[in-house]
Design a protein around this nucleic acid. Structure first.
Ligand SMILES: [Mn+2]
Ligand SMILES: [Mn+2]
Ligand SMILES: [Mn+2]
Ligand SMILES: [Mn+2]
Lengths: 224, 224
DNA sequence: CCGGGTTTTCAGGTTAACCTTATCTTACAA
DNA sequence: TTGTAAGATAAGGTTAACCTGAAAACCCGG
């Protein structure tokens, strides 16, 4: 049973499966391939390799699930990723929408010893700068109680809590719109026929497409 | 002219050439291969690839030198390596003899932006925890004015300043003997026929083989 | 119950890094 | 000067990740 710390590629597959699996149920290989930017054939090959190593289970025409062991490895990578994001943003002062891709390289080069020490150094933060929880051993990952922006009704107000799943383009786009975690927004209207959500916020009007809004989570705020 | 930040393997070759080149003159491929733990044939292949990219120049039967461009890339990797070492040791509290190999993975996953920010965060330290200078743009790397332990004479006293080149086994060994940077030593005798150096230090007698001693540098201290 | 679209598999190909074994070349020391 | 060890090249092989193009298997809505 060699469970060697795996290489970058395999780690990205595991991490991605874990991220896509939050919407419950097995992840189709095509979704994996899409997110990783490889062909479905390549993804299939890799998934089979991972299956041979007991990290993943593939039910043809259904999708893939992480095994216990695969889940542990994915969590370790995600943990390291989010801790690095915190460090890069909070301590090194790098930009909110840059730290994701910077951490995505570091996460594969990080020994567990470093992860542990970093966690302590940062004071055991609860979330990454984009609001996603930092996995810890012994702690069951409690489901966050926020909802996507798309569930708001016109007139509702909310604070942005989380972006998931994270991607460079999305984070960059949100940063441009100044819709980062902690931002207070109130929904003005939803343009019909799958149009964007329109937010009004002190003098400012922001249009956010449905696709993006579905990935941004918030916690409603009582009206004053 | 694609000068893409290179992959781990190429970076290690460049870094190693740079390290072995301090003893002036072109580095034989066999030395490279030895340090990197690959066959000379593999090293030759890689050196040719690097030459095609204009990073290295190979004069058959003489050795290889870095080009201007190769030197710059090597320095960038070394810079990142030594800054990470400082962070891991000083801030995260990891052990003196562990940080080298931990940093050897991080160094290839570090964007220049991160390196710069890290340098500032650490307050622009001059050296890594093992005494080697941290390269900076604009600063010509001044030759350190220390000498190897092997140049001491019995009766001499000195402070350990530097270990070069660094390797896991050597650092671990030195840590065991408590011969780390900053340690005060005085040479008692040199055992003939290439025998070890014998140091006496408050109640403690330490034997250090010639091969190791040649890689440990010190600054002599005036006798009181 | 069947056909079209999704999903998977098959076949064949590429590239970077490695490897071994074997055959040159060259430098230099006796 | 010449023999030999060190260094370089040649030849052939492996593995992980990728790719394309095409065939086969499946699932589900009409
Ligand atoms: Mn990554
Ligand atoms: Mn994040
Ligand atoms: Mn390295
Ligand atoms: Mn060091």
């Amino acid at each position: 049973m060699k469970h060697d710390s795996f290489n970058e590629s395999a780690e990205m597959y595991l991490k991605t499966v874990s991220e896509l699996a939050v919407n419950e149920g097995p992840v189709p290989i095509s979704a994996l391939a899409g997110r990783l930017g490889v062909s479905t054939v390549s993804a299939t090959e890799m998934v089979h390799r991972l299956q041979d190593h007991g990290l993943v289970e593939h039910q043809p025409y259904k999708g893939i699930c992480l095994t216990e062991c695969g889940y542990r490895q994915a969590s370790e990578v995600i943990r390291s990723h989010r801790l690095w994001e915190r460090f890069l943003a909070d301590d090194l002062g790098l930009a909110w929408d840059e730290v994701h891709s910077l951490a995505c390289r570091l996460e594969h080069a990080t020994d567990p010893k470093v992860t542990e020490a970093l966690d302590a150094y940062l004071g055991y933060p609860a979330t990454c700068p984009h609001g996603n929880p930092i996995p810890r051993h012994h702690s069951t990952p409690s489901e966050p109680e926020d909802c996507p922006l798309t569930e708001l009704r016109p007139g509702d107000s909310a604070v942005i809590t989380r972006v998931h799943p994270e991607s460079d383009e999305l984070l960059e786009y949100l940063a441009d719109l100044e819709l980062v975690t902690g931002t207070y927004v109130s929904l003005f209207e939803v343009v019909p026929f799958n149009g964007p959500l329109v937010f009004k916020e002190r003098e400012r009007t922001v249009y956010l497409g449905l696709e993006a809004a579905a990935l941004v989570f918030c916690k409603p705020v009582e009206e004053a």
